[in-house]
Amino acid sequence: MDVKKRETTDWLLKQLFKAIGLITIVLLGGIFMMLIYNSIAFFAKVNPVDFFTGYQWDPGSVDGNYSILPLLASTGLVAAGSMLIAVPLGIFTAAFLSEFAPGKLQAVLKPVIEMLAAIPSVAIGFLGIVLVGPGIAKLFGIQNGLNALNGSVLLAVMALPTIITISEDAINAVPKTYREASLALGADKWATLFQVTLPAALPGLIAAVMLGLGRALGETMTVLMATGNASAMPGGFLDSIRTITATIAIEMGEVPYQTTHYFALFAIAAVLFLITLAINFLGEYFANSLRKFQA
């Protein structure tokens, strides 16, 4: 009968959907394998010790200097700077949104944050060139505003929506009874926020920061456009820098296929991949511990 046909269709489609679900594992595995495969090709030609300890990234030179350190330092510096700005700003905004803003204000602020999240990174980078960079140059009396500080400010703006949204969820997830207990003991709203609610939401807040940090570390266009692209070891926030992402973006378009330089770009990508993976795992770990604490 036709029942058979209908049930076979159901079974076949279930297998199809399952196969498509498996693609996600294959994709992640494929990205990982691609990075590892090309990195191995690179380390066959360049000593890993030089890669992790040298002070120069200069693939164009005669003997070819492939040290990731200046790029890693640049990446770390600009991302750390962005977190210094975005973390307090993001968490306080989230606290304001969830604890103090009246419903109507929330209805206005939420779309503002979503719109901020929607602005393409290239547009933020553009503003770094035409607005923020020159502003920084003027403020500090320096020639060139395209430096780490510029990148940090812009990355902070880009990481903010992520940090605010997830922090707000974390704060909202703190059981109401905690707050009521504190208020009932005579603590005012502020003491409750700083001494009860925020500490209780801490794992979620850390998860928010981790995801924001992951975004800042992985961002390409903004830092490519706005940080000056000097691949020397950075000395401070007013130095021009060049992150791992920007290096890949600049050099990949020009290197010949399967040269040492080509493989080198995959090797630095592998390092970036592992860092973001670790940060995501950390973020997830904290997000999970929040869930456990609620149950």
Partner: peptide
């Protein structure tokens, strides 16, 4: 996958 930097997708 959602956390991988977009430039790595480019590669």
């Amino acid at each position: 996958l959602a956390g991988i930097p977009s430039i790595i997708y480019g590669l």
